[in-house]
């Protein structure tokens, strides 16, 4: 569970996470945004469906994989959050293109 220091300034951007509105701070990564919003897990594993959340925050663990604007397997800790982004929990195996 993480909270922002007052120094961090306001979360002025708006994104959605699984359709629900979430405030985000310009300069944060998607993974940091999810943690600040108290979201428990960002994906479930393809092998067993276990819930996972960001672990290393530096792009080496691949736990923070999320679907961003319809594209899956994105490392949330490497992607700066943008106003209007649609983030979704990545469930299990990668869904197919339609």
């Amino acid at each position: 569970m993480f909270q922002r220091l007052p120094d961090a300034g306001d979360a002025t951007l708006s994104i959605t996470v699984d359709g629900k509105p979430v405030k985000a701070r310009a300069g944060d990564t998607v993974a940091a945004t999810l943690l600040a919003a108290g979201i428990d897990h960002c994906r479930t594993t393809p092998v067993s469906g276990a819930p996972r959340a960001p672990y290393c925050m530096m792009g080496v663990c691949f736990e923070c994989l999320v679907v961003i604007d319809g594209v899956g397997n994105r490392q949330g800790c490497l992607i700066p959050v943008r106003d209007g982004m649609a983030v979704e929990t990545q469930h299990g195996k990668r869904e197919l293109e339609r």
Binding site: Q3, L35, A53, P54, Y55
Partner: peptide, 21 residues
Amino acid sequence: PGVMTAGAAQILLKSSGMIPH
């Protein structure tokens, strides 16, 4: 979920000004 590295915590602090509660 809830288990992370110390390095991850430092990144959250430095990049986003976030601390745990």
